[in-house]
């Protein structure tokens, strides 16, 4: 698993780690039961403080993406992918609703919007 952090980003470092681990899990790159690097190893590898990776892992654990065994480390938890998919879909629908409202405000036609979507999607 690759994690790439940006120091310029407004998003805190622990959020960046968390989000990248989540997408690795959702995309299937990180399979169920697979061990994550230890908190301290990851901190060293990323050149950041231990408390930052610790917080990222804590939040991942809270959200049910990983679980930890004392003395052994952290592992990818079993994911109910259907439920996650459902949730994501809901978010996408909501966001698209916003996009459509905005388009209508400036008189953008459905075809024009589709073209923009197509270009962006293929990027």
């Amino acid at each position: 698993m690759q994690i790439i952090l940006s120091n310029q980003s407004k998003e805190p470092l622990y959020e960046q780690i968390k989000n990248q681990v989540v997408s690795a899990i959702l995309s299937g790159e990180m399979e169920e039961g697979k061990a994550l690097p230890s908190i301290r190893q990851l901190a060293k590898d990323l050149h950041i403080s231990v408390i930052t990776t610790k917080r990222a892992y804590e939040e991942l654990e809270k959200a049910g993406f990983i679980y930890s065994i004392v003395g052994k480390g952290s592992f990818v938890a079993e994911q109910n992918l259907d439920v996650i998919r459902e949730k994501k879909l809901k978010v996408i629908e909501e966001q698209l609703g916003n996009v459509i409202r905005n388009s209508q405000e400036i008189g953008l036609s459905y075809e024009e919007l589709q073209d923009i979507m197509k270009i962006l999607y293929e990027e």
Partner: peptide, 24 residues
């Protein structure tokens, strides 16, 4: 710091050092 048993306390006035490794 990898084994988790050690503690480091260090003074500095170069704050960029801390951005990288300080927890507190």
């Amino acid at each position: 710091m990898l084994d988790g048993e050690r503690t480091i306390f260090f003074s500095t006035h170069i704050t960029s050092d801390l951005d990288r490794i300080a927890d507190y």
